[in-house]
Write a protein that binds this DNA or RNA. Structure first.
Lengths: 212, 212
DNA sequence: GCCCCACCTGAGCAAGCGCTTAGGGCGCAG
DNA sequence: CTGCGCCCTAAGCGCTTGCTCAGGTGGGGC
């Protein structure tokens, strides 16, 4: 029972390289279940059931339930970091690159909002050393975005009274997409990405007459 | 064990009217525990222990653990709704009133970030009829903010390509404060409120030379 | 035929869960 | 004093939890 879940594949999800097949089915089941009910409300029996196997089979592929969460969290954070680094090291002005970063970051949170929910809201359930590793990744993503904004300030394209505050606000705006996206069916991930890129530029650009 | 928690009281928290004292201690303990570990990871023994009583005493004051969550969620949502309605029905231009709304909404999420976390991130753990009631409250808060933005668009102060999208973005930005605030000690709730009011106005105002 | 190995299952263990029950102490009206 | 009601606790019930383990199945090399 439990038909195959169809997830949109516009951006790559790294589960293709997870083997054997049962392990992949488990990790996909875990993303859906953790996103829907939360890590602590999900039982190993739920996961095994959704992946089409007995509860005991889970422990052939993963040592603990927490390791499954860690795999998801780690893969998600690394993927997001790469996304932002690509945007940051791309061509164009800081304005262009911040827009690209926000577009990609937002779009990922919308398109993969189930995985994004696990990545962003289930950190607290990680074991201590796993948690520390993830926090380090998050600091790095923060630094990437702050770097682009700083460059924009240097060129005079951005005017921000508080660099750290603006960085937090920009990332916060994008991250929270994972929370509300899905309840509303009207907008596509691409549209939200465009809208947010525009809003963020409006937020940070100096409010002079030389608009676009 | 477990000293008295000191919560800043700049904005009123309605627990003063919760009686008897043990019931109030329980609800305060529940806010802290639910915010820190999440509803499902918190046990009734944790709550009773933090409130300084035996596990069984909880059930004298609340029928279930879920009812405790519901009391917190309901009180929080009603408080936030009133906060926004006050700002919306205040004096001044739509620009002034949106700034006031964002300032108050943001500040509440920062100042009471433990309660806000429960209010914003533990909805899914509510029983079905409680959940429906809370969702209704959330729709009303949404409508209040959308109303202010719409007025600003009518007066020509705001230029937004997508009213619903802009509303979601504005509220999203404020709500997410509950997630990250507390890790960073550098900013006060008032400062974040000011920063966010400024950023939101920049996001929505038409980008002409008639600035400020 | 044979064994090996990767993968899986049924049954179940110890611990912890939400919640209940029987009863105890204490303040107060009589 | 007695009697009553409120607030509380110790003990524990029935169930679910994360996880284990002995054993089974099926395909490939010999």
């Amino acid at each position: 029972m439990g038909g195959e879940e169809k997830t949109s594949q516009v951006m790559p999800v790294p589960w293709q390289q997870v083997t054997p097949d049962a392990a992949r089915r488990l990790v996909i089941a875990a993303v859906e279940e953790f996103a829907e009910r939360g890590y602590h409300a999900t039982t190993t029996r739920d996961l095994a059931g959704r992946a089409g196997m007995s509860p005991a089979a889970l422990y052939i592929h993963y040592k603990t339930k927490e390791e499954l969460l860690y795999q998801i969290s780690s893969a998600g954070h690394r993927l997001v970091l790469r996304l932002l680094e690509d945007a940051a090291s791309g061509e164009g002005t800081p304005v262009d690159r911040l827009a690209a970063a926000v577009r990609a970051f937002t779009r990922w949170h919308a398109e993969h909002h189930t995985m994004a929910r696990v990545v962003q809201y289930e950190l607290g359930a990680l074991a201590k050393e796993h948690h520390a590793e993830i926090v380090d990744l998050r600091c790095r993503t923060d630094r990437v975005v702050r770097g682009i904004i700083q460059e924009g300030v240097d060129t005079g394209d951005f005017v921000v009274p508080d660099l750290a505050g603006a960085t937090v606000a920009v990332m916060s705006l994008c991250i929270d997409v994972a929370r509300w996206f899905g309840a509303e069916r009207r907008r596509s991930p691409e549209e939200v990405g465009e809208l947010y890129a525009d809003l963020v530029l409006r937020m940070l650009r100096h409010a002079g007459p030389a608009h676009q």
